[in-house]
Design a protein around this nucleic acid. Structure first.
Lengths: 236, 236
DNA sequence: GTATGATTCAAACGAACGTTTGATCTGGAT
DNA sequence: ATCCAGATCAAACGTTCGTTTGAATCATAC
């Protein structure tokens, strides 16, 4: 492996050889485009410009590479989300947050990452949305672990901010919002598929999605099998 | 191929041999579970209980099989959607439809199909949601053709029912709604992934999603980079 | 029965897959 | 100069992939 008890490489290279980084970047892009099974090790290594065997050397296996592609971004993303929530709750001093503040904390960092086309954030978010729908056996437990705490914190915050909405409803609406976000990110690609060519300012995506999510989250509750009910009471 | 100029088989078997049907059912289930690349011909034929070569005989290739799995369900689904819209528009006699009626016409048939766990509708809808996020090259054009007319009709109807909402906004919100629906259908599978075990009455899904979608569709417009704006005016 | 075309079958094809191997290279420590 | 662990490399491993082949089977028309 690349890190042992005695690592004699130069400090700036320790823990992230150029080779490993090139592999991760190429893999992220290719997995997002063609999926896990659709992307061969030979394609990854040829795009990265490294030797075929170096993936197994640095990451153990193709699955190990896939997990590492996820880990490096998802950990950062979820830490960011938790920090946003911490800050908002500290500022509220015990009072329930506004729903819009909760949504901003959870979906804001994801959309910001998706807007970053230079450092590969956009590529990763497309991969994430895609993987959520095709939960490869060996990713599920990993994803569950990474997400468990974040989702628990945020659904709690949502419940406190909308006390009239039952918990089960909060869970479902959270799920619906994740779907909308996922499609928002795959965005133009799929929109073209269904609507023909489609040009738009990427900067408008975030407010657009925020408005939609907030409207859905605060919608009147269903009454059983119709769609009427009293609006959930909460300013903003 | 199975249909030639002179087909001498019994009428009840013409055009859909038992073998072909068994292959389609097995393939639908396996593609939904493991994706296109993750499902081998040998697995499909062994689950279907037919000879390996029969896929190429009946469908030409693996891709041909995949397309036929989509075609048989998607054609029916979209015809159903168009019929719903025709009926609603005829009843309205030229007046704009209520947004809830438009949504019911588009998302209702899909959710109904997703609720059908016996005839395989649920399986197919999971496959559809999944494929939308991983648009295999050779499916895109096919999907675009199948969807073009339906989406055009429905976005027109939505625009007429919400004249204060700009067309671009309608397109995006339609896209967001498709994402929410897709996740709603993958539903419990993914919810468990993120929230731990989760039990719920499947019959409640439709009203739940309907309420959420309607709230999002009718949300106040974004103002550029915040999330405020006047509500879109429309009763219901 | 015999002929005929549709269908099924076991077997094999070459190509591509993920992984392993053992040699070779590299650069700092002694 | 020597050593040695980390890193890279070309080559090969055995397996699985989608597809093709040619013979066997089946059902129908004559």
């Amino acid at each position: 492996m690349n890190t042992t008890v005695l690592d004699k490489r130069a400090p700036e290279a320790r823990g992230s050889s150029d080779t490993a980084a090139r592999i991760l970047d190429a893999a992220e892009k290719l997995f997002a485009e063609h999926g896990f099974d659709g992307t061969s090790m030979r394609l990854i290594t040829s795009v990265a410009g490294v030797n075929l065997a170096s993936v197994n050397y640095h990451f153990g296996s193709k699955e190990g590479l896939f997990q590492e592609v996820f880990r490096r971004r998802l950990t950062e993303l979820n830490l960011h989300r938790l920090a946003m929530l911490d800050r908002a709750e500290a500022a509220a001093a015990g009072a329930p947050l506004k729903p819009s503040a909760v949504l901003e904390g959870f979906f804001g960092p994801a959309l910001d990452m998706a807007a970053d086309t230079e450092r590969g954030g956009h590529t990763f978010m497309r991969l994430l949305g895609r993987t959520y729908t095709e939960p490869a056996e060996f990713v599920r437990k990993f994803m569950a672990d990474e997400y468990a705490q974040v989702v628990a914190r945020y659904t709690d915050a949502l419940y406190r901010s909308l006390p009239d909405v039952p918990r089960a409803e909060i869970m479902w609406r959270f799920h619906f919002m994740m779907g909308a976000m996922s499609y928002a990110i795959s965005g133009a690609d799929s929109l073209e598929l269904v609507t023909g060519r489609f040009d738009d300012d990427p900067a408008l995506l975030k407010p657009r999605l925020a408005a939609f999510l907030l409207g859905g989250l605060r919608a009147p509750l269903p009454d059983g099998h119709g769609m009427r009910g009293e609006p959930a009471r909460q300013a903003d």
